[in-house]
Amino acid sequence: MAGMKTIIGLASLLATGILLTILSCALYVNWLPILVPLIFLIAPFPNMLCERIAGGGAGGGGRDIWSDSSDHRGVLETGYFITSFFVVSGVGLPYVLSHAEIIRPEAMFLSVAGGLLVYGTILGYVHAFITAEEPYM
């Protein structure tokens, strides 16, 4: 079954991401990089909420139909805007911290890698298991 391999792959991605983040905090006894995967964790939520709002009238997730009618386009664009804001923030926060020499550059690389893995896990989960026919959650 393809679902089993997907689940195992996503779980190992998530575990690797959390491991890298914990390493970036614990190796340099500075727990500020733990904020990075939290930012990546809340990044998909504006996207999901706005898609849900925009597709709500179509009986749930009718996104392909509604994505270009003009009254739902603004809502969708707001979702994309805020989501990409959070994704860039997940990279920008450790860069700022390491540029100000609050955390070390190695901790920056580790935490960004860990956060991107966590975000990739969320994207992969949504792509693989949440289909357009049934609503989110």
Binding site: D68, L76, Y80, I82, S84, V88
Partner: peptide, 12 residues
């Protein structure tokens, strides 16, 4: 789509 690329690019 155009909506997606414009929204993501502006947010970035």
């Amino acid at each position: 789509s155009r909506t997606e690329s414009v929204g993501y690019l502006a947010g970035v």
